Amino acid sequence: MARQLPPARERILKAAARLFQGAGIRATSLDAIAEHAGLTKRTVYYHFRSKDDLIAAYLAARDEPNLALFQCWFAEGEGDAAARVESIFRHLAKAARHPAWRGCGFLRTSVELVDQPGHPAVVAARRHKKRVEAWLAGVFQEGRNGQEAEALARHIMLLLDGAFAVVLLHRDPSYLDSAGEAAACLIRSFALVGAEM
C-alpha cells in the first residue's frame, strides 16, 4: 500500500519552515517552497493568499510548540524558579550548538520586516513574545504582586532575546549560558527584595 502524503497545507508549512529558517524569508521564493513541498505554486496560492500570509502562518504554527517547549524545560528543571528558568537558557544553549541552529525565528523574521511593523508576521511574532512574557509573569506571581511579576518577566525576556542576538553575532552559545546565570541571579534578587518588604 502506498504511503499517504500529509495534506498540502501541512506540506507547504513544513517546507516554508525549513526554507525560512535556513535562508530567511526574503531570500525564499514561493517557487522554492512549492518545489520543496512537491506541489505547484498554484496549490500554494490556493492555501495562502500571498507570501505574507504564508510567513504569518509559519510563525503562528511555531507559537504554541515553542511556548510548550519552554514550559516543558521549566517543568523538568530542578530547584527553585530561578534554577528552572536557568535550565531554559541551558537547553537553548545546547540547541544553539547544533550547526543548523539559526536563532529565534520570531526575531529573525521581525528583523527582516523591520520596515513593516504592521506585517501579519510581525504581529504574530509580537503575540508569541507577549505570550512567553505573560507565562513567565504567571510563574513569578507567587509571593509577588502583579507589577513585580510583570517587571521580572520583562527583564527575563530582555535577557533571552538579547542572548539570541549576541549568540548569532558571535556564533558563541555560551552567551545563552551567561544570560541564564544572569536570569537566575535577577530572579533571586527579586525574591530577596520581596522578603525584606
Rank of each mutant, 00 (worst) to 15 (best):
L176F: 07
W101T: 09
S110Y: 04
L113D: 06
L54K: 08
L59T: 05
A60G: 06
R188K: 09
E64F: 10
C185S: 11
A179Q: 10
C104D: 11
L152E: 04
F20N: 07
D31E: 15
A124Q: 15
G24N: 07
A23Q: 13
V114P: 02
L160S: 01
H119D: 12
E64A: 15
R108W: 00
G38D: 04
L186K: 01
L136P: 04
W101K: 03
E64K: 15
L176I: 02
R108D: 03
A82S: 07
D63P: 02
W73D: 01
L19P: 05
H36W: 08
A183K: 02
L5K: 15
E196S: 07
L19E: 00
R97I: 11
E78Q: 10
F106P: 02
R188L: 01
G105A: 04
A37L: 14
A8P: 02
K41R: 15
M1L: 12
R9N: 00
F190E: 04
R108G: 11
W73K: 09
R126H: 12
R42F: 07
Q21G: 11
L176P: 00
L39H: 00
V193I: 01
L186Y: 04
V111L: 14
F190C: 04
A17G: 06
Y46K: 13
A2E: 12
H91C: 10
S189V: 10
V193L: 13
H47E: 05
G118N: 02
A37T: 11
A56G: 00
R97Y: 02
G118Y: 03
F89D: 04
A34M: 08
K94F: 11
L19I: 12
F190R: 03
P65V: 13
H155K: 09
A125P: 12
R154T: 01
G146V: 02
S87V: 09
V114M: 05
G79E: 00
F20W: 03
H47R: 10
Y58G: 08
A125C: 09
R42L: 13
I55V: 14
R126V: 03
